[in-house]
Amino acid sequence: MRIRCPLCGERDSREFHVMGAAEWLARPAPDAGLEAWDAYLHLRDNPAGPTRELWFHEAGCGAWLVVARDTVSHAVFEAVPAWEAGA
């Protein structure tokens, strides 16, 4: 699998560490309550199809990226820095 890092160009997936769904960017307020925190920490849409996922370009530039990709075809659509992506 290959990812086009917006800072480094196209790279093999072996340079990256994957954290999980991009929902990790939508951190609830500290007082949002257990339901909100449960949803944030655990519950996932887990789509069979397009998804957004957090990849860390660990052996490259060190950027956290939101990678838009497809969980069925493994197509990779886009990768943008996490700080620009939002949840």
């Binding site: 699998m1 769904a21 969980t71 069925v72």
Partner: peptide
Amino acid sequence: DGYASYAQRGNLP
């Protein structure tokens, strides 16, 4: 492999 997938196949690394 580490990424979410429904594809029943993985990659070389």
